[in-house]
């Protein structure tokens, strides 16, 4: 963990070396999800509501998933950009160091410019929370924090899975976008508006629904049943990450038996 922060600080220093481009990118990152959010706003303006969801509720859904996405793009960037590390041969270097490969890959890249996106999502979050009549208490606040944290784990797990694919092929990794970008696009609206197969897939296979839609029902006071069940939902993110890590280790073993 200490080492992870050392990695953080050295990469932060590096990125600040290019100050102008750093700020420009941060600024630009602020605007990318902005147009998507504007689209959402305009749709609600025209149609009023979405299957019983109000605009601010949907905005909260949007904010949670975008927060998780931008945090994972910032901190798990190393896995996202892993094909570059393989192509440059940098992965061999990691293998001759006495630390776990997953930690070193995580530490190989951070994208601090994603703070722009993070800021935008945070503003949406605050705005939505201010407008929603939520009956706040400690369990609800904890649930909300857990949702974001475990969302990060899911995205990280997906990055890890597709980084693992790099050990076999450098092509076709675009398919990962379905689960990261696609998952994000999908999960920014409440999950119950989709067809059954989408809902099932994104609840039981890649559990975006568990870190976003389901616990949110509880936060918004729409849930029936025991709150503990809903509060524990986000932990599905942890359950998702573990097999991803195992697959990663298999990938590393494969790499070491075949080379690149």
């Amino acid at each position: 963990m200490v080492l992870y922060f050392k990695y953080l600080s050295i990469l932060f220093k590096s990125q600040l070396q290019y100050r102008a481009s750093f700020w420009l990118l941060t600024f630009g990152q602020f605007f990318i999800p902005f147009s998507v959010f504007a689209g959402m706003y305009l749709m609600f303006e025209r149609f009023g509501e979405l299957r019983g969801w109000t605009f601010y509720e949907a905005a909260l859904v949007f904010a949670v998933i975008h927060l998780a996405f931008s945090l994972s793009e910032c901190f798990a960037r190393g896995f996202d950009m892993f094909s570059g590390l393989i192509a440059s041969g940098g992965f061999d270097r990691l293998l001759v160091r006495p630390r776990s490969t997953a930690l070193q890959v995580l530490g190989s890249q951070f994208e601090f410019t994603r703070f722009g996106r993070l800021l935008q999502s945070a503003i949406v979050l605050v705005w939505a929370l201010a407008k929603l009549p939520i009956d706040w208490n400690a369990p609800r606040a904890v649930t909300l924090a857990l949702m974001v944290a475990c969302g990060v784990l899911i995205f990280t797990g997906i990055y890890m899975l597709f980084a693992t694919l790099c050990f076999w092929t450098v092509q076709g990794l675009e398919i990962g976008n379905i689960f990261t970008d696609g998952g994000r696009e999908m999960a920014q609206y409440p999950l119950d508006i989709y067809k059954k197969w989408v809902t099932v897939f994104f609840t039981f296979v890649i559990p975006f629904g568990c870190v976003n839609y389901l616990p949110l029902l509880y936060v918004l006071g729409r849930a029936h049943g025991h709150p503990a069940g809903y509060m524990a939902m986000p932990l599905a993110g942890v359950l998702f990450l573990l097999p991803c890590l195992a697959v990663w280790l298999i990938g590393v073993r494969h790499y070491r038996s075949t080379g690149s």
Partner: peptide
């Protein structure tokens, strides 16, 4: 995904 979102909006 886009179609499902639009259809959901349209349905209401």
């Amino acid at each position: 995904i886009f179609l499902m979102i639009f259809q959901a909006f349209y349905s209401g």
